[in-house]
Amino acid sequence: MSDIKSHIQSQIDANPVMLFMKGTPQFPQCGFSAAVVQILDYVGVDYGSENVLASDELRQGIKEFSDWPTIPQLYVKGEFVGGCDIVREMFENGELKPFLAEKGLIQQDA
């Protein structure tokens, strides 16, 4: 495994919810990344993040790693969940919270 791929794998292993995004949660530099940040903050889950704009190697590497051509990319417990559209659809359809709760990452609503 190349260095960048093992770096990505270690990030995914270390963070149960891991977001690869443009910018940072405080300063997203893309509307799609900002949307996922907003949703994750809203559901109240802790997550790790990495700014792909800080490294060309990471920006290319994550696309190959996930076999997914766009950023942002969300991983939950080592599993690739999807990009902005998928996260947004899961949220809007009320699937995201149960999905995270089932994995013990947030408290399920009573």
Partner: peptide, 23 residues
């Protein structure tokens, strides 16, 4: 959903690597 998006991404791989910045 993930499989569906992957199908589309594959069909449009060339465009996504080129002119299409976001889909």
């Amino acid at each position: 959903r993930l499989q569906r998006h992957k199908m589309v991404n594959e069909i449009l791989a060339e465009e996504l690597a080129g002119p299409v910045h976001a889909l």
